[in-house]
Nucleic acid binder design. Structure first.
Lengths: 259, 259
DNA sequence: ACAGGTCATGCACGATCTTGCACGTTCTTT
DNA sequence: AAAGAACGTGCAAGATCGTGCATGACCTGT
């Protein structure tokens, strides 16, 4: 006979709350607390477990095991070096500005390093960047569509270029495959290079965050000259002469983690 | 015989107020309080539930479920029930076909349940869906761009509609906020409803996977009539009469997990 | 004033849900 | 290995549910 003082769903919600606050529940204790039989509680726990809302164990239940992201998300575990690059890069972002962020793990680190509460408009052609931003209610998000190059993790091609044509970001963080004072910024595919060139042309300022392995290397397709960058962020281990050479081109050079 | 002391709409308003202030109502208590039969109260609660103004449960009602938590938190609630819905849904997908997948945790479960090796073209306006597909090298991915509604997790508006105009998917999995045999599929915002309606019009077939909490409920904005669906997938606990009523509209009804 | 239609209500009824109990099975402790 | 505790399943009882029907009040048109 149903207990008129508490509804079935209320009891489930209270059990769930207790799991959150106390980290575990015991069936016998719950039966006593709710003044129902332990069989009723076992049904409740079974129902919660079936719904993925608890982990059923002998004698009671534990909170549900946290679900990890996709394999790619796990692969994207951000290294400390990229975090330092990111922290140096986000200082370039003005609150309320419109920023474009490219695909790539360094750029994902940049987005993660941005203040969640500070309002801004984020534009991206990278689904992983956009998916991350879904957890930032204070931001405005604009997704550039098109055919997605799955290896690259970004939408490219005619549709993407057309979407881009309506946007002039204040600042664009562009990922590069190679960055050299003479060869400039370079990419692995023609479409990738073309899209990024257009982003750079439309943005008021352009920033690149360059890991050591991309510095002084040259991929097959030119994006833009090094001097086309407003800012370039380097690791502390980058060659100082290279940084100076790029600085002499009029680029604002920043060393991540430098005091 | 109507009680002249209180009007029908007044009673509904008072019940709603009690839901707000007390967090729950019991049908038997309300019947006693308003001096009407419990059948009258059940009709009232049914009416409130149909309008999305309460959550009907055994013995009474709870306030309508608030849309709380970040997008990632809602994504993490990928329960066993949704997995069953997803497994039933993916059987509708032909290898090599072009499918559209909407935002939402049930739709994410559908994408996760698709065979990673079987080639297909995935079209979506949801960054989380697209980000997941980045782990599927055998697929072709087309991202629909536009301004992203962060709470919803999907790109909407004029740019999204324009991107959509160039695509006619073989099958579209559309998320609904409410699904009712009479009210049809409904959504929480005008732009969301408009976009989904366009998807449905352009797709050769339309499928909805409906969790119990969305069934027999009605959000404010109509998307399409229930009969406009080719397929509707339900949980095993969905009311059989409701499933039959939808089947009579010419919709192919599927019960997830049924043996 | 009267007839017809609409609406809300109460009732009957079959269906469904929740609970406690019994019982055999499984797990843990001694 | 044995005893005790916990478990899931099936069953019965009582409560709750939705649907269809009848009824009376109210409204509208003639």
């Amino acid at each position: 006979m149903p207990d008129p003082d508490i509804l079935h769903e209320e009891r489930l919600a209270l059990i769930e709350a207790k799991l959150s606050s106390e980290g575990r529940v015991l069936a016998a204790h719950l039966a006593s607390e709710f003044d129902v039989s332990v069989d009723t509680i076992r049904r409740d726990l079974r129902e919660l477990a079936a719904g993925g809302r608890c982990l059923r164990v002998y004698g009671g239940a534990l909170p549900p095991a946290p679900r990890t992201g996709t394999h790619q998300q796990r692969r994207m575990q951000l290294s400390e070096r990229k975090r330092l690059l990111a922290q140096a890069s986000v200082r370039l972002v003005e609150p309320g500005s419109v920023i474009f962020v490219d695909a790539g793990t360094t750029n994902l680190a940049i987005v993660a390093a941005l203040s969640p509460e500070s309002p801004l408009t984020l534009v991206t052609n990278a689904p992983a960047i956009a998916a991350f931003a879904l957890d930032r209610p204070a931001w405005r998000l604009i997704q550039i569509g098109g055919v997605v190059d799955i290896a690259l993790g970004a939408a490219l091609g005619a549709a993407a270029l057309r979407d881009l044509a309506a946007i002039s970001p204040d600042l664009a963080f562009i990922g590069v495959c190679g960055f050299d004072p003479i060869a400039g910024a370079t990419a692995h595919s023609l479409e990738e290079a073309e899209f990024k060139r257009q982003v750079a042309m439309r943005a008021r300022e352009v920033a690149v965050a360059v890991t050591d392995d991309k510095l002084l290397t040259q991929a097959p397709f030119p994006i833009f000259a090094a001097s086309a960058c407003s800012h370039a962020v380097f690791e502390t281990t980058a060659p100082r002469r290279t940084i100076d050479a790029i600085g002499e081109l009029g680029v604002n050079t920043i060393i991540a983690g430098a005091v």
